[in-house]
Simulated assay, not measured.
Amino acid sequence: MAEMFEWGDESVLSCDADGPAIDSARSALDLVGEALGQRASVIALPARRLGPAFFDLRTGIAGELAQKAVNYHLKVAVIGDISRYLEASTALRDWVRESNRRSSVWFEASLESLAARLGGV
């Protein structure tokens, strides 16, 4: 079950790690719809909900999720260890590094590190 947190000026929808996989444009849109329905401004999405195709940038799934979030004025934080994917892809490492410098898509090790980023802890 998803939880809501208020950290800093953000309302964070922390998604359940055992929820449906985000593996298509449709599932990304469903996730955005859930966040909007909860009046969230940030989606905290466990990395385990993202299959290998998400981390293969050529599939476009990561871009779909990022674009949908931006279109609806949401932020997305992928939470958890993605080191095995980073080791396998220079392009993904570059995208993660650049995303973490910006304000719409982040990759965080834990919910606690996301809370710290948002000024909630």
Rank of each mutant, 00 (worst) to 15 (best):
M1H: 14
E3Y: 08
F5Y: 05
E6M: 06
E6L: 04
G8I: 08
G8Q: 03
G8H: 06
G8F: 07
D9W: 01
D9L: 10
E10Q: 07
E10H: 12
S11P: 01
L13E: 11
D16Q: 01
A17H: 09
A17D: 06
A17K: 10
P20V: 09
A21I: 03
A21W: 12
A25S: 10
S27W: 10
S27M: 13
S27H: 08
A28M: 01
A28L: 09
L29N: 08
L29H: 00
D30F: 01
L31E: 05
V32N: 03
G33M: 04
E34T: 10
E34Q: 02
E34S: 02
L36R: 15
L36K: 15
R39V: 04
L45W: 14
A47F: 07
R49N: 10
R49G: 13
L50E: 04
P52M: 01
A53T: 15
A53H: 07
R58D: 06
R58S: 11
T59S: 14
T59A: 08
G60I: 11
A62N: 11
E64C: 00
L65R: 07
L65H: 13
A66L: 13
Q67A: 09
Q67T: 15
Q67S: 11
K68D: 00
K68L: 15
N71H: 04
N71C: 06
N71Q: 02
N71A: 10
Y72T: 15
K75S: 10
V76E: 00
V76A: 01
V78N: 10
V78A: 02
V78I: 12
I79W: 00
G80F: 00
D81C: 06
I82P: 12
I82H: 00
S83Q: 13
S83E: 09
S83L: 06
R84D: 12
Y85F: 13
A88H: 05
A91Q: 10
R93M: 04
V96I: 08
R97E: 06
E98V: 12
S99M: 05
R102Q: 04
W106Q: 05
E108S: 09
A109R: 15
L111C: 11
S113V: 10
L114C: 03
L114G: 08
A116Y: 01
G119E: 11
V121A: 11
